[in-house]
Simulated assay, not measured.
Amino acid sequence: MTSDTYRPTRADLNAARDRTIPDVIAADLRVLFCGINPSLYSGATGHHFARPGNRFWPALHVAGFTPRQLRPSEQAELLKYGLGVTNLVRRATARADELTNAELRDGARRLTSLARRYRPRAIAVVGVTAYRSAFARPQAVVGPQPECIEDAVLWVLPNPSGLNAHYQLPDLAAEFGKLRERVNADPRS
């Protein structure tokens, strides 16, 4: 069975609790996308945004970041397009609300360290509520943020989880597209 047809069992999901998955990262990326934390599904498969119904991969494609929709198992191909993926909190949980504010704040410090080391042009945190907690910005909204992380433009995108009913795929892709336009126009200006 390939990783694209693998469907974790309940036991697999339970065993994935607190598991970490590696970052997909390299120096000088156009955009480093930063999720909240891996789902149990992602923890079981080892792939970012792997849960069926997550709209990260379709939004990337529709927004023009990738020429076709990648599957979670193809996450390493992001690097060919100058893109990467990490998470604020590395451990897998069933729900993001299982994370503490302290973990999110630690994640913001880790993200800053990654930015210093890898120098992405832009960082996009996917999940405004997590961003607000991690960076102590309770009034933050989706879109560009007034501050940078190191030299990287900081952007907040809606959470692509299928549970986020506020953003359907066209709206989600439109927000991703705004980031792509900014990055293509030289985000550091």
Score class of each variant (00 low, 15 high):
A134V: 09
L79Y: 02
G53Q: 07
E147G: 05
A59V: 05
G162R: 09
G35D: 02
P52Q: 10
A174N: 10
L60R: 12
P120H: 05
V31D: 03
P160N: 11
S133P: 02
I21F: 01
R119C: 10
A130C: 09
N159Q: 10
F135M: 11
T66D: 02
Q75T: 01
T9L: 05
P8G: 09
T93A: 08
R182E: 12
V142R: 09
R119V: 08
Q168L: 14
A59I: 10
I25V: 11
D106N: 12
A76R: 14
F49P: 01
S113A: 15
V141E: 14
V62A: 08
A76V: 11
V85G: 03
A94Q: 10
L154R: 15
L13H: 15
P58G: 09
I123Y: 01
H166W: 10
L88K: 02
Y6Q: 05
V153G: 13
A94C: 00
P58A: 05
V85C: 15
V24E: 03
I123C: 01
R105N: 00
A165G: 09
E103F: 05
S39H: 00
A50Q: 00
T20K: 12
I149R: 06
R132V: 07
L179M: 14
Y118V: 08
A124L: 10
A44E: 04
L179P: 15
R68H: 12
W155K: 07
R188F: 09
V62Y: 01
R30F: 00
G53A: 07
V31T: 11
P58R: 04
A92P: 00
V89M: 04
R180G: 03
R68A: 13
Y118F: 15
P120T: 06
R121A: 15
R116N: 05
G43M: 01
L157Q: 06
L179T: 14
A50E: 02
C148N: 14
R119D: 14
V141I: 09
L104K: 05
L40E: 06
A63H: 01
Y41A: 07
G127T: 11
Y131V: 06
A130Q: 07
W155Y: 15
V62W: 02
P146H: 12
P120R: 09
L29S: 04
S42K: 00
L70Q: 07
A165Q: 15
R121E: 15
F33A: 05
I36A: 00
L40W: 06
Y41C: 06
N87Y: 00
E147M: 10
N14Q: 13
A15V: 02
Y167E: 08
V142P: 12
H61I: 01
F33P: 05
A94F: 06
S161V: 08
E181D: 15
A16C: 06
Q168C: 04
N87A: 06
A92Y: 00
R95N: 09
R116P: 02
L70I: 09
E98R: 08
L104Q: 07
V141F: 05
V24A: 01
D23W: 03
P160D: 12
N14W: 01
T2M: 03
R51T: 13
C148S: 14
A108Y: 11
A26Y: 05
L114D: 00
P120W: 06
H61K: 02
H48R: 04
